[in-house]
């Protein structure tokens, strides 16, 4: 029995010595990128593209870990609470970072993250079936005004980016929709195809996948490949742009951060990245980390207001 304990002790000591002396150049082992949504989704594919290109430059694999749950908050919490040693980073969209914290108490907040950089952005687009009886925004408003409560909007989660922009639009025009929650976008699209639902607000990628067209994009600048009015055109002063950023837990050492930022900057500004992202119908958007951090703080506040606006009568 004693012999065994001695052997165990010896093995432990050796291992401790080896790991203790390992402070070589970053990165020296695989990096984990946490994506708070399911594999194959519109928040996961850009992460895989980014990770695939970044790992070639860093020399170590970047492993995508999908941590699913509670509208993206479970994964975001795991990013916020991870050890800030540069080996755990995250890829997060607007919703989980800016909207969710205003709706309930979460173990993270606006100051839990260190931004590495912005990756993509696209405006939220209100979509409707190509077979609908309205052909553009004005017609839709006319028809819906006459039948309050009759037309239904599919939302993928209460109070998230598919819900709040539509409420804002409805308030602007004085329309009354009914909001029906579903568990995933494909289900909503099926309902739109069957004409049980009439509207859905989502990222533009769905426009090419399903038989729908866009009525309005919620941004103050027009995006080229989206032929529809934007919110500035109709006087709605609200921006609902879904951006996705690469983030790290606060407290990451500055030299490691610099390596990550430099790599990401190179990748995001490269042609391969742009091609892949365009194939996903998204737009590339690079922002330096400091700018991104300030932008995040502003967004956080503005979404809080948008939410309060949407609820208040």
């Amino acid at each position: 029995m004693n012999k065994i304990f001695k052997k165990m002790g010896l093995t432990l000591a050796c291992v401790l010595m080896v790991t203790g002396s390992a402070f070589a150049a970053y990165p020296e082992r695989p990096i984990t990128m946490i994506v708070p949504f399911g594999a194959g989704g519109s928040n996961d594919l850009p992460a895989r593209v980014l990770a695939g290109l970044m790992e070639k430059k860093l020399g170590q694999p970047i492993v995508i870990q999908n941590v699913v749950g509670a509208g993206g908050t479970q994964g975001t919490t795991q990013i916020a609470q991870a050890k800030p040693d540069g080996y755990t980073i995250g890829f997060d969209p607007t919703g989980a970072l800016c909207l969710q914290p205003h709706m309930k108490k979460l173990p993270y907040g606006v100051d839990s993250f260190q931004f590495i950089g912005m990756a993509t952005q696209q405006p939220v687009v209100l979509m409707t079936s190509k077979k609908a009886s309205w052909k553009n925004l004005e017609e839709m408003v006319e028809i819906v005004k006459k039948a309050p409560g009759k037309y239904r909007v599919g939302i993928s989660g209460v109070g998230n980016m598919s819900h709040v922009p539509v409420i804002a639009l409805a308030k602007h025009y004085g329309l009354q929709f009914r909001y029906v929650p579903y568990r995933s976008t494909p289900e909503i699209m099926k309902e739109i195809a069957a004409d049980r639902l009439q509207f859905h607000a989502d990222m533009p990628v769905a426009l090419s996948q399903y038989d729908v067209y866009g009525l309005i994009q919620f941004s103050d600048k027009k995006v080229d490949n989206l032929p529809m009015p934007n919110s500035a055109d109709i006087g709605l002063n609200k921006n609902f742009i879904m951006w996705q950023a690469c983030i790290a837990p606060k407290g990451i050492p500055t030299d490691i951060l610099k390596i990550l930022v430099d790599t990401m900057r190179e990748v995001v500004n490269s042609k391969e990245y742009a091609d892949a992202i365009h194939r996903l119908s998204m737009n590339v958007w690079w922002m330096e980390p400091d700018e991104a951090q300030k932008f995040y703080e502003k967004e956080f506040v503005s979404y809080g207001e948008a939410l309060k606006d949407a609820i208040g009568k």
């Binding site: 209460v158 409420i167 909001y179």
Partner: peptide, 10 residues
């Protein structure tokens, strides 16, 4: 129920 936000037709 610590619902901070309550939407209509909930």
């Amino acid at each position: 129920s610590d619902a901070v936000i309550v939407f209509e037709d909930n």
